[in-house]
């Protein structure tokens, strides 16, 4: 379905120091530094998969998306999507993909959203019947029936984002690229967008590739994660595998009455207040159930909760692990 092999991309970036004098100098002599945005990026994605593509800012996420959507031509390497090379057969290729850039609008600013939809229908040569059917379905799912008669510039960010997503699905693409679709959205809109993405993936079997910095997006949506850093794919696996990797430590928060808790090996106190304690359990040395048993044998527990590492923490530890 989607296959990338050894994709490399280098950007030349002009450099100069600050100041007017330097700016004048730069007119005549430029110093360039090469930035290797992507180094031998390879992966494979099957039809109907939902993949989270994560990495810090500037890691190469957007570049990869742009290569896959036919915007950029890589320096070397192969990329085949639906049997086509995106930058060689651009027009045929983009008929089958939808792209949402969270930071940029694709709607015409001054006209009602539905007018933009009509124009997109003509751009993608969607026939009237399937357009109507699709539009009805999308407006219902995204709950935008009320707002599509409003000019895009008067919509809130959440409303607009829902319209953007609808706009990129009007031609029923087989692959959907979402570049930070939930950026800047409030909790309600975020959840609406996530639910919608999940529905589309299930019902239309659309392959979804999602880049985001919001780990809740990843947790809510994707099974598989690709981690990129400094232009290299560092990790390719499921969220659960990732969690296991990082779940050797669990945090216990205990409210209790009684004596202070005596620790054993594998159990460490991180916060100790009167009647409230937080402990870290190393599950390789001591199973959580045993730790709880030890604690409740010592004191009278009134409340206890167990917390694993959140996705956010996992990613931070991954970034640290790979030094990106």
């Amino acid at each position: 379905m989607i296959e990338l092999r050894d994709i490399c991309k280098t950007f030349k970036v002009a450099k100069r120091n600050a100041g007017l004098g330097e700016a004048v100098k730069a007119l005549f002599r430029r110093e360039y530094s090469e930035i290797r945005a992507l180094k031998n990026v390879s992966f494979k994605i099957d039809e109907g998969e939902m993949v989270g593509y994560i990495g810090p800012n500037g890691a190469g996420k957007s570049s990869t998306i742009k290569i896959m959507s036919g915007i950029l031509t890589p320096d070397s390497g192969e990329c085949v999507i639906n049997g086509r090379v995106p930058w060689k057969e651009r027009i045929e290729h983009v008929k089958e993909i939808g792209v949402v850039f969270g930071q940029r609008s694709q709607l015409w600013w001054d006209v009602p959203v539905v007018d933009s939809f009509e124009l997109l229908k003509d751009i993608y040569r969607v026939d009237e019947l399937s357009f109507r059917k699709n539009l009805n379905e999308l407006t219902e799912l995204l709950d935008i029936g009320e707002i599509i008669r409003t000019p895009a510039r008067q919509l809130s960010l959440g409303q607009r984002m829902r319209c953007e997503i609808a706009a990129s699905l009007l031609h029923n693409p087989r692959v959907l690229f979402l570049d930070e679709p939930t950026i800047g959205l409030d909790a309600v809109s975020k959840i609406a967008v996530r639910n919608f993405i999940r529905t589309i993936n299930k019902e239309r079997c659309t392959t979804v590739i999602l880049t985001t910095h919001d780990m809740q997006d990843i947790e809510a949506l994707t099974e598989r994660i690709l981690l990129i850093g400094k232009g290299k794919i560092l990790l390719d696996g499921t969220l659960n595998e990732l969690k296991k990797r990082n779940s050797t430590y669990k945090t216990l928060v205990v409210d209790y009455t009684g004596e202070r808790i005596k620790t054993v090996s594998g159990l460490r106190v991180t916060k100790d207040l009167d009647g409230h304690v937080e402990l870290v359990v190393d599950t390789t040395l001591l199973p959580v159930s045993q730790a709880i048993a030890i604690i409740s044998s010592q004191v009278d527990v009134s409340d206890i909760s167990v917390m694993g590492a959140t996705a956010e923490e996992m990613v931070v530890s991954l970034y640290k692990e790979f030094e990106i």
Binding site: K66, S69, G70, R90, V94, I97, R104, Q106, Y124
Partner: peptide, 14 residues
């Protein structure tokens, strides 16, 4: 420079 061309490139027209 405002990235509009990216959008143009992902649409199936000349």
């Amino acid at each position: 420079s405002n990235g509009e061309f990216d959008r143009i490139m992902v649409r199936p027209r000349n």
